[in-house]
Simulated scan of single mutants.
Amino acid sequence: MSFASPVVAAAGSDDPAAPLVVLLHGRGSHEREILTLADHLPADLAYAAVRAPIAEGGGFAWFANRGIGRPVASSLRETMDWFRKWLDSVDRPVILVGFSGGAAFAGGLVLDDPSRYAGAAILYGTLPFDAGVPVEAGRLSGLPVFVAEGEHDTVIPRQLLDRTWTYLSDESGAVTTARRDPVGHGLAAPALAALAEWLRLNRAE
């Protein structure tokens, strides 16, 4: 399947050398919605919110699903390859920040090629297990990762949230900052503040 060129919305620093935080929205959303996160994150970083390539539900999606949090492997591969073509034009450190479906997409990208990224934040979502990307022990060795989950999230299956938490905290080899807040499927204010602090500490020049 061929996709149109990415629609990208930008915010933050206009310094071409500033690390780039790529914001990846959830299923059925769009780039302008997640770009609002940049207002709460370090101003000296650059932000690019990318629109997912598959139209769905009045918004856009990163991949076809075979169930909530379970990407179709062939669809995920197509969209990751599409995204990487855009990313090839970016010559600076890149940190991925994904929410919900965007978290699964960010997880797929970083598991597929860990050395390409300076870090990844997995917000209220699952890694794309059983979807054609490697998840062996030590896969993300040394990579800064931030994971936030809602204790009362009923959108993403709890089994997948728990598997993501365990893999990132205990198996992946990543340098993981992980937190759970007493919320559902939505970004808690304390988690957003913690994400901002994590970005300040892990920005790569």
Rank of each mutant, 00 (worst) to 15 (best):
L143D: 06
R180F: 13
R92D: 09
G132D: 10
S141A: 15
W165E: 12
E136N: 15
G108F: 08
P157F: 10
P182Q: 08
E78H: 12
A137M: 10
W165Y: 13
G59A: 06
Y167I: 10
L41V: 05
G59D: 05
V145Y: 00
E149V: 07
G150Y: 00
G98W: 06
G184K: 11
A9F: 11
V8D: 09
P19I: 11
W198H: 01
D88H: 10
L195C: 05
L201Q: 15
S2F: 12
G67S: 08
P93D: 09
V183R: 03
L199R: 01
S115T: 14
L76H: 12
E171N: 07
A191I: 00
I34Y: 00
E78W: 11
F60N: 04
L20A: 06
E149W: 01
V133W: 02
I122L: 06
T126W: 00
T176C: 12
E56H: 13
M1T: 13
S2M: 12
L37S: 04
P71L: 04
A17N: 13
L24K: 01
S100K: 01
D14E: 13
S75K: 11
D112Q: 07
L192S: 07
F63D: 03
R70W: 08
L127W: 00
P144D: 04
D170E: 15
G102T: 02
P6A: 09
L187M: 09
V183G: 07
E33Y: 08
Y167R: 06
A120K: 01
S13H: 03
S89F: 07
F60W: 14
L127V: 05
I95P: 00
G173C: 01
F129T: 09
A38G: 02
L20M: 08
F3G: 01
P53G: 10
L23W: 05
P134C: 11
V7G: 07
A38I: 03
P53F: 10
V22K: 03
M1A: 14
S5M: 13
A64L: 14
L23E: 01
G142V: 03
A46C: 08
W82I: 08
F99K: 02
A4H: 12
M1Y: 09
R70E: 09
F105M: 00
G58C: 10
P157A: 11
G12K: 01
V183M: 09
W86L: 05
R200Q: 14
I54V: 13
D88A: 14
A55G: 10
G28W: 08
A46N: 06
T126S: 15
G150R: 01
S141G: 15
W62G: 02
A17G: 11
I95R: 05
F63M: 04
N202Y: 07
S13K: 04
E151M: 15
E56F: 14
S74Y: 10
A55L: 11
A18K: 04
A55P: 15
A193Y: 12
F3W: 13
V72H: 10
A46E: 06
A61S: 14
F3Q: 05
V175I: 14
G132I: 07
F129N: 05
A64M: 12
A188M: 05
V135D: 08
A174H: 09
A106R: 00
R180Y: 12
W62D: 01
N65E: 14
H40P: 05
R66D: 08
R139G: 00
R92V: 08
A10F: 13
